[in-house]
């Protein structure tokens, strides 16, 4: 009989518990919470989390970053390089200096992983065009990759009139003038933390024969670039390209640049110091005469404004 009493009592208690459970307005019962965490785990397994914004912008300072413009986004860029800091106070440390170098470029995202760009810069009257293709994206989850890898290729043409070509550089009359230069780059980057990313850029440059005195026109270089977030909107960037010594042109130095960029919803401003005056890959990687230790470094800024053309596709 005592068993029956016990059962009845248990039943009554369960009943009360059940009712209070229903009245408790904030309590999530065990099974509900379990189902939710099950769903979350399931989704997490199917989800691939891509590293977003490894770099803030499609270019680190002068050179390419692994970032691409999203599809149907147009980017209008204006880059300005002043004269060397060593030109002294009279030239306001390069700001009054002439010539300065200005580049105007238009870049466009055809897909989220493929972008193109064209630009003109004043130094050596250079036109350039490039494409950049993202091959791999750093991700965790269903698809895992430790790095983002992109391939970029740039063609530049110097349109200097024959009379304007530096006589010291001008090839002898028997050699054909070659105005075009080509740059092939593999970009591999990893975002190590929310604020810090590093990028390596093995680079091949084929230089033209009118704008700089090269011994070898095929030059291998390896670049390294980094990004450190200083605040939500402000980043510190640095970029260095090392040319293999036996290929380096006499009088050319490796380019080293530092910049602070500020993103403000659609605009990116970058204030920078660099020893390079040239603004296309071939120029800054292989034709930089300036040296940091000679105070040849110069001040410059980059401005970018993006425009969304048409609706974004999923």
């Amino acid at each position: 009989m005592s068993l029956i009493k016990f059962l009845l009592l248990t039943t009554a208690l369960l009943n009360i518990y059940n009712k209070t459970g229903a009245q408790d307005t904030t309590r999530i019962a065990g099974s509900d919470a379990t189902l939710m965490s099950q769903l979350e785990t399931q989704e997490a397994k199917n989800e691939t989390n891509y590293a977003a914004a490894t770099f803030k912008y499609t270019h680190v300072i002068d050179g390419q970053s692994v970032e691409n413009l999203p599809a149907r986004v147009l980017d209008v860029r204006i880059l300005h390089r002043f004269g060397p800091l060593s030109s002294g106070l009279y030239n306001f440390f390069g700001l009054d200096y002439s010539p300065f170098n200005v580049k105007i470029g238009f870049e466009y995202g055809i897909t989220n992983n493929f972008m193109i760009g064209v630009a003109h810069s004043g130094y050596n009257k250079t036109y350039d065009a490039f494409f950049k293709l993202r091959l791999l994206r750093q991700s965790t989850g269903a698809i895992k990759s430790p790095v983002t890898v992109s391939f970029a290729s740039t063609v530049a043409i110097s349109t200097l009139k024959p009379s304007q070509i530096d006589p010291a550089v001008k090839p002898d009359p028997t050699t054909k003038i070659d105005r075009a230069s080509y740059v092939l780059q593999l970009l591999a980057a990893r975002k190590f933390s929310e604020g810090f990313a590093l990028q390596l850029m093995p680079t091949f440059v084929h230089a033209d024969n009118i704008s700089f005195l090269h011994n070898k026109h095929d030059i291998f270089a390896i670049g390294i670039a980094g990004r450190q977030k200083l605040s939500k909107r402000i980043n510190f960037n640095a970029e260095y390209y090392y040319q293999l010594p036996d290929m380096k042109a006499p009088g050319a130095h490796n380019v080293l640049s530092f910049g602070i960029n500020i993103g403000t919803g659609g605009h990116v401003f970058e204030l920078l110091f660099s020893n390079s005056f040239g603004l296309t890959e071939k120029q800054f990687i292989t034709e930089t005469p300036g040296r940091w230790d000679n105070a040849d470094a110069l001040f410059g800024f980059n401005i970018s404004r993006v425009f969304q053309l048409g609706k974004k596709h999923k």
């Binding site: 509900d32 189902l35 939710m36 989800e47 999203p70 993006v306």
Partner: peptide, 25 residues
């Protein structure tokens, strides 16, 4: 998840799954 007996209601979403018409946004 909603429990139609107790009325307990839960939502969970990943912020990066929000889709904007403009990529920059």
């Amino acid at each position: 998840v909603v429990n139609m007996e107790t009325g307990a209601l839960q939502f969970s979403l990943l912020n990066n799954a929000f889709f904007f018409p403009k990529a920059k946004m």
